[in-house]
Amino acid sequence: MKKIGINIEVDVFSRTQTTDKIISATAYNFAIGLTLCWGFAINWLMVTNMSPESIAAINPWVFFIGYFASCFLGMCLFNRFNNQLVSSVVYNFVVVPFALIINLMVSQYDEVLVSEAIRITGLVTIGMMCLGSLFPAFFQKIAGALTIALLLVIVVELIEIFVFGVHHGILDWIVVLIFCGYIGYDWGRANQIPKTLDNAIDSAAALYMDIINLFLRILRILGKK
C-alpha cells in the first residue's frame, strides 16, 4: 500500500529520498511541461473570460491580502504534502492569483505586444533551462546573490513608487536578469531531486512563478518602447 508522505521541515528541492515511484527522465520532464501548460491554460482562460474592470473593482487591500495568502498557502502545502494528487490541487492556489495579476497587466497592452512578450519569454525560458541543465553548480552558487538582489530591488521599487512616485526602467531589466537566473537555478534543482510525479508538479510550481514574473517584466519593457 502506497504511503502518502507528509513532510513539514524539508522543502521540495531538499528531498533526497522518496517512497513514491521513480519515473523516467523523459516522463519527469514531460510532467513538468504538462503542469506548466495547465497553469498557462488557466491564465489564458481567466484573461479571456474575466474583465479586468471586475478585478480592479475589488478592494485593493482585500485583493493583495488574498493574493499573498493564497500564494503563501500554496507554497506551504507544497512543502508539507508529498503526494501528487494534493500537489495537483494546490498548484491552482498559486496559478489563480497570478492569473488575476496577469489579467490586469495584459489589458494595458496591445495584443501584438503581448504575443511578442510571450514569444520572447518562451525562448528565454528554454535557453535558461538548457543552461540550468549544463551548469547546475553555477546556478547553485549564485542562488544567494539572486535572493539578495531580488529583495533589494523590491525594496527600491516600493520606495520609488510610494515615496518618490517614479519607476526607473533599469529595474525591469535587473528583475529580468534575476528571474532568468532563477529559471536556470530551479530547473537545475528540479533535475537533482528524485524523479517522481509529485516532485515534477512541485518543481513546475516554482518554475511557473519564475516564468510569469519574467513575462510580466518583459511585457513592461516592450510596452515602454
Rank of each mutant, 00 (worst) to 15 (best):
Q84P: 00
A57P: 01
M46H: 09
V47A: 15
T48G: 05
I178H: 04
F64I: 09
I102P: 01
L73F: 08
L134N: 01
S107K: 05
T48I: 07
E157S: 15
G74C: 06
N83F: 02
A137R: 15
W44H: 13
F68S: 04
P97V: 06
N103S: 07
I142K: 00
L77N: 01
L177D: 01
A41D: 00
E116K: 15
F40K: 14
S133T: 11
E157H: 08
S133R: 12
V96I: 14
T125E: 08
L36Q: 11
V124F: 03
V114E: 07
S115L: 13
V112W: 02
G66E: 14
L131S: 05
V94K: 03
Q84V: 01
W173Q: 05
N82Y: 07
T121A: 10
L36K: 14
L134C: 14
A57K: 10
I58R: 10
F139W: 11
S54G: 04
V166D: 09
L113R: 04
M75G: 05
L134A: 14
S107G: 04
I126H: 08
L34R: 13
V156Y: 02
I170A: 15
L104K: 09
I126M: 11
L134F: 07
N79Y: 11
G39K: 03
S87R: 02
F162Y: 15
Y67W: 11
M105P: 00
Q108L: 12
V62N: 15
I178R: 10
V163E: 12
S107Q: 11
H167M: 13
N59E: 06
L177Q: 07
T125S: 12
G165Y: 07
I126T: 10
E116H: 12
V95S: 06
M46T: 12
L100F: 03
E53D: 15
A69R: 04
F81G: 10
K141C: 03
F81L: 09
G132H: 12
S54H: 10
I161P: 01
P97W: 07
L85Y: 08
I65Q: 05
F164G: 00
G165S: 15
Q140F: 04
N83T: 04
G33T: 02
F164T: 08
N79P: 00
L131V: 02
G74Y: 02
Y109A: 08
L150H: 06
L85P: 02
E116D: 14
I58Q: 05
V89Y: 00
W61C: 07
V153Q: 06
W61V: 09
A56M: 12
Q140I: 00
V47S: 10
